[in-house]
Deep mutational scan, measured.
Amino acid sequence: QYKLILNGKTLKGETTTEAVDAATAEKVFKQYANDNGVDGEWTYDDATKTFTVTEKPEVIDASELTPAVTTYKLVINGKTLKGETTTKAVDAETAEKAFKQYANDNGVDGVWTYDDATKTFTVTEMVTEVPGDAPTEPEKPEASIPLVPLTPATPIAKDDAKKDDTKKEDAKKPEAKKDDAKKAETLPTTGEGSNPFFTAAALAVMAGAGALAVASKRKED
């Protein structure tokens, strides 16, 4: 009698068979294992007439167990938060979910874009303008004329002030004479000065007065 010990991944146990020799028993056991989907390494112990079949655990490639991950970057252009961060993800969709959660946790809500070549996400917050509040242009400074500094008044001594007054009066006198001369030139000519009769009478009076003066002097002599 021969014995078979099964150490399979899905089947474990023992069974026996009657055979004329070990070779015949081995054929029977291998057919049995094959029928039950057991495929492994076989050993035989002649002392105990025991066969053992052991399935090795399937070696799984690490790449099959853990999907390949890629590093993705997020650029934040927020109104109050600006910067960059990264995450590792199996695909862009997974990275996007992580980045949007990160942005939401930090109060950033804007327009999202993605560049597959650089594996970069960008979120930009738009500045909202309040309706009716149009931007006002800064007032242009008016052209200013530079002020001319005033010349301080120079105090005048009393004596100098009197001299100035005297000079002013002396300066006025010639001007007054000139005014009188002008008035004389502009006076109208009277009839006496221009009538020949009056001129002859005046000469006769003057001659008579002269003769009287000569006669009076002779009497005195």
Rank of each mutant, 00 (worst) to 15 (best):
T10W: 06
V20L: 10
D45L: 12
K30Y: 00
T15W: 05
K30H: 00
G40M: 02
D45G: 11
G37K: 06
A25V: 05
V20F: 13
W42A: 00
K49S: 11
D35T: 13
N36D: 03
A47F: 13
K3L: 13
E18I: 14
E18T: 13
T10Q: 06
G8N: 03
A23V: 14
N7K: 12
G8V: 04
T52N: 08
K12T: 15
N7A: 10
T16E: 08
K27V: 04
T24K: 12
D35K: 12
K27P: 03
D21R: 12
E26S: 00
D45S: 13
Y32G: 05
G37V: 06
Y44M: 05
A19N: 08
G40P: 00
Y44N: 02
K27D: 01
A23P: 15
E26P: 00
D46A: 15
Q1Y: 13
E18W: 14
T15R: 10
K27L: 04
A33C: 10
K9I: 10
A33D: 00
A33K: 00
Y2A: 07
N36V: 05
D35L: 13
G37C: 07
T54D: 07
T52M: 08
G40W: 01
L11R: 04
Q1N: 11
G37S: 07
K49D: 09
A47S: 12
D45V: 12
T48I: 13
T50C: 11
D39K: 10
E26L: 00
T16I: 08
A22G: 07
A25H: 01
F29I: 04
Q1F: 14
T17W: 10
V20N: 11
A25I: 04
T48W: 12
D21S: 12
K9F: 10
Q1H: 12
V53G: 05
A33Y: 02
D35W: 09
G40C: 03
E55K: 05
T54M: 07
I5W: 12
V53E: 02
W42E: 00
N34V: 01
T15Y: 06
K27S: 02
A19E: 06
I5F: 12
V38M: 10
K27A: 02
K27C: 03
T24R: 15
N7Q: 11
E14V: 14
V20T: 09
T50A: 09
T17G: 07
T52H: 08
Y2M: 07
K3N: 08
G37A: 10
E55Y: 04
Y44V: 03
T16K: 10
G37P: 01
T15E: 07
Q31Y: 04
Y44H: 05
K9D: 09
E14Y: 14
V28T: 12
T10H: 06
A23T: 15
E18H: 14
T52R: 09
Q31K: 12
D45M: 12
D46K: 15
T48N: 11
T54I: 07
K9R: 14
K27F: 03
G40D: 01
D21H: 13
N36I: 06
T15Q: 08
A23K: 04
T48C: 12
V20W: 13
K49W: 09
K30D: 00
A23D: 10
K3I: 10
Y44P: 01
I5T: 10
Y2F: 10
Y2R: 03
T50M: 15
G40F: 03
A33V: 04
L11K: 04
L4G: 05
A23W: 15
K30S: 00
Q31V: 06
L11D: 03
T24E: 06
D46T: 14
K3C: 08
K30Q: 00
Q1I: 12
E26W: 00
W42D: 00
L4N: 06
E26I: 00
N36S: 07
E26K: 00
N7T: 08
D45P: 02
K49M: 08
A22C: 06
F51N: 00
A47W: 12
G13V: 05
E41P: 08
G13M: 03
